[in-house]
Design a protein around this nucleic acid. Structure first.
Length: 791
DNA sequence: CTTTTACGCT
């Protein structure tokens, strides 16, 4: 090589800008230490020509692109060779735009692109993800008669696949005059790229019918296909083929095999293989670390990483961390997560979009919304997946409104939501949206072509139910082409929250008739329904069936439902005994259920007992404090009342602001308790006044006897008579057509005073009033409520 | 003198 460069001493200067291979070459002229003008060739011989081409090739091969460019600009370029070499250099370094520009410049300078040029140019189009550019080049190929060239055809297959057009790739493949093993491999990896693993596997079979012998490329791609489809049998056949053809000790093939077995859930097979392979390559380790983590073996995952470091002196790379993070999340320690985050920063792995996105996902899953938000805010580059992660993080942590805001911001980012986005955001709509907004997102889901996605339809059904429209929920369920067990669970739950226990049970029987096997969630829906509808015997029956007939161990949530069921019977001692005898450690939710029952039945001692347990588990449980303080106030136990209040002050707890929402004329109207600032306030209070008189409520003096005189003025202001739900209903009655139901959504549970008032209002106004509270949906009609007055 | 296919990742 030294002789090839002898003519150009400054290229040999070791101080040149990139004496060693670099990842991202910058295109600039190299320093010219002699201060000479760039060398120009005046005269050339054939030998010079060859030498220059060799030098160019050498620069390109060693990644010294700026040198290559400089030489290229100063050498004679009578044929396509030099152009081809530089185009290759650009493509191999990811400079696709530059490669294509050079190709056009070549044409402008009158040099025809040849059969060597086009494969690179086509590859650049694939790398750019520019189908348009690719088709333009393809048209040119057709014109110059190179479209049937083997190499060109092979590159076209990859280009179309990279642009997610398996159909066009297949067309090229089908029309080729001759196919070699690369053609088949390109098509196999092409199908894999577009997510069609089954076609990849079929093609692996087919190539053998055509007398083509699969090589390591074929195996690597088709193992990816077996992983994607979780087709263990196919994967094992490929494993056999690898052994028969002597490829079983090919490290890349082995890595793919480890990955395939893990993706198919056979960690033990993967482990056996892993133990027998050479461990010099971090990729193999990463495959195993991921395998453990995604098969719910977090400790093994972390141990594997430790062994990699301790026993093989390999340092974790970015992908190691991405793969081990789910293991951290499974171990449930926010602290460990934070330390991995810190480690990523110290090792210089950040910024990295995939790692950051994974961290956001894990923070979200571990209750670390703060960390997730911080990371997202700092990200230099965000993909749709990053947005999906931050949206899911908010939804998982109960920040539904904020999640909806983020979802809206997506529009401004020229990003189109995908199925994951929709699946993440739908639960937020279910929790806080009004029916009109629910319908809007439903329409949008259909427009995206996700209307027949079972997973998403399940969420849509639940959303309609939570928005108060059980009819539409049932209709969508009925029209679903493919129902899975979740679909049934959801429709049972939909009827549960509307207080239709009988229908839930009927649906449960129907699902069994259809041969759908109930799971633990099915029983949760069913037990929830029995508890909400007060079907005590049925509830106990299903609870016993769980273990007896279905071999499903009840989880804490099932015990919670049964406890609610016992609670509503009023036998609080039985409830307490049930908690004591539970085989699971009672959670705050369990004690909360006992607390609620104690409140309903006015048993203040039991309430104190339950609250003590709640606060020992969650010292900042606002709901518990509020409930207990209300009970003290009602009982006139002012010292205890003050005690709770001061405890709350000490903990910095504030009562969540309750509000009710109602949609009218395409607008959302929101009301807080005693809201004086809402739109049309005077009209609304006027209506409320009339209604209150008609139903016999003194708007200024409800529940006054329960409060001590000193607090009278204070409590008067807090009177339930002007609770948000009543303001919303007053507004609803005058802003909707007579005969239509009034649909209200409120973020808290409806209070007892309001519940009995709304019953009377429904009778008085002859309207159906639907109040979606934080847990159930109340249908008020003719003076009665669907919840049978227990909620 | 050059060209195509390739492991682990949200």
């Amino acid at each position: 090589m030294a002789s090839a460069l002898a003519h150009y001493p400054h290229f040999c200067n070791s101080a040149a800008p990139s004496g060693h291979p670099i990842a991202k070459p910058r295109i600039s002229k190299p320093a010219n230490p002699n201060g000479n003008k760039p060398t120009k060739l005046v005269r050339q011989s054939k030998a010079d020509h060859l030498t220059l081409n060799r030098a160019l090739s050498s620069f390109v091969d060693s990644g010294r692109l700026e040198h290559a460019v400089h030489l290229f600009e100063n050498m004679p370029r009578s044929d396509a060779y030099a152009w081809n070499v530089l185009i290759r250099g650009f493509v191999n370094n990811g400079l696709f735009r530059e490669a294509i520009e050079l190709y056009y410049r070549m044409a402008r300078e009158g040099i025809g692109a040849d059969n060597y040029t086009f494969p690179f140019v086509v590859k650049a189009c694939g790398g750019l993800l520019s189908l348009m550019e690719g088709e333009k080049v393809h048209a040119k190929l057709f014109k110059v008669g190179l479209d049937l060239d083997l190499y060109v055809g092979n590159s076209l297959i990859s280009m179309y696949a990279e642009n997610f057009r398996a159909d066009l790739a297949e067309k090229v493949f089908g029309e080729m005059r001759a196919r070699d093993v690369v053609s088949w491999n390109s098509m196999i990896s092409g199908f894999l790229l577009v997510g069609d693993g089954w076609s990849s596997l079929a093609l692996l079979q087919e190539m053998q019918v055509f007398g083509m012998r699969p090589d390591r490329y074929s195996l690597i791609s088709s193992l990816g296909a077996a992983s994607l489809t979780c087709y263990l049998q196919g994967g094992r056949e490929i494993h056999c083929w690898a052994i028969r053809s002597g490829l079983e000790s090919d490290l890349m093939v082995e890595t793919c095999l480890v990955n395939m077995y893990c993706k198919c859930g056979k960690v033990d097979y993967a482990e056996r293989l892993f133990n027998s392979v050479s461990k010099e390559n971090i990729v193999t380790w990463n495959a195993m670390i991921d395998g453990y983590a995604s098969n719910a073996l977090p400790s093994e995952s972390l141990a594997c990483m430790k062994s990699m470091q301790d026993d093989y002196n390999l340092n974790p790379d970015c992908i190691t961390l991405i793969n081990m993070l789910p293991a951290c999340a499974q171990l449930g320690s926010l602290q460990v997560l934070k330390s991995v985050h810190g480690h990523s920063i110290r090792k210089g792995f950040l910024p990295n979009m995939v790692l950051e996105t994974t961290l956001i996902n894990m923070y979200g899953a571990s209750g670390g919304l703060k960390g997730a938000k911080y990371l997202f805010g700092k990200m230099a580059e965000k993909s749709l997946i990053s947005w999906n992660a931050i949206i899911a993080a908010h939804v998982q942590n109960g920040q539904n409104e904020a999640a909806l805001v983020l979802f809206q911001k997506l529009w401004c980012e020229r990003l189109e939501p995908d199925a994951i986005t929709i699946a993440s955001i739908l639960p937020a709509f279910a929790e806080v949206a009004l029916l009109r907004e629910g319908r809007q997102i439903h329409g949008y889901v259909s427009k995206l072509g996700l209307g027949s996605n079972t997973y998403i339809s399940n969420s849509i059904i639940y959303m309609y139910a939570k928005c108060g429209d059980l009819g539409t929920a049932q209709q969508i369920f009925d029209e679903m082409l493919i129902k899975d067990v979740v679909s049934w669970n959801v429709i049972i739950m939909a009827h549960a929250i509307h207080g239709c226990g009988g229908k839930s049970i009927a649906l449960f029987k129907e699902m069994k008739k259809y041969g759908v096997e109930p799971n633990a969630s099915t029983f949760f829906s069913l037990l929830m329904s029995c508890s909400i509808s007060g079907l005590v015997d049925e509830g106990w029956g299903y609870f016993n069936q769980m273990r007896g007939s279905y071999n499903i161990d009840p989880g804490i949530e099932h015990y919670g439902c049964v406890l609610d069921l016992i609670g509503r019977t009023g036998n609080l001692d039985h409830a307490k005994e049930f908690v004591k005898q539970m085989p699971l450690v009672p959670s705050a939710r369990i004690w909360g259920s006992l607390l609620t029952a104690s409140r309903k039945h006015g048993n203040i001692e039991m309430a104190e007992y339950a609250a003590k347990h709640i606060l020992s588990l969650e010292h900042d449980n606002t709901g518990c404090c509020i409930l207990l303080s209300n009970m003290y106030a009602e009982a006139g136990r002012w010292e205890d009342f003050e005690g709770i209040k001061s405890l709350m002050r000490k903990e910095g707890l504030t009562k969540t602001v309750g509000y009710s929402m109602m949609e009218s004329g395409g607008k959302i109207h929101s009301f807080t308790n005693q809201d004086k600032c809402c739109q049309h306030a005077s009209t609304i209070y006027g209506v409320l006044d009339i209604i209150s008189k008609r139903i016999g409520v003194n708007i200024h003096l409800t529940r006054v006897t329960r409060f001590r005189p000193l607090d009278l003025a204070n409590e008067r202001a807090k009177s339930a008579a002007a609770h948000s739900v009543r303001l919303a209903i007053s507004f609803g009655l005058i802003s909707t057509a007579i005969g239509n139901p009034v649909l209200i959504r409120q973020n808290t549970r409806i209070c007892e005073d309001c519940h009995s008032a709304v019953k009377k209002i429904s009778d008085l106004s002859d309207r159906e009033i639907i109040v979606v509270d934080a847990k159930v949906v109340h249908h008020f009609r003719d003076g009665c409520c669907s919840c049978s007055d227990y909620w």
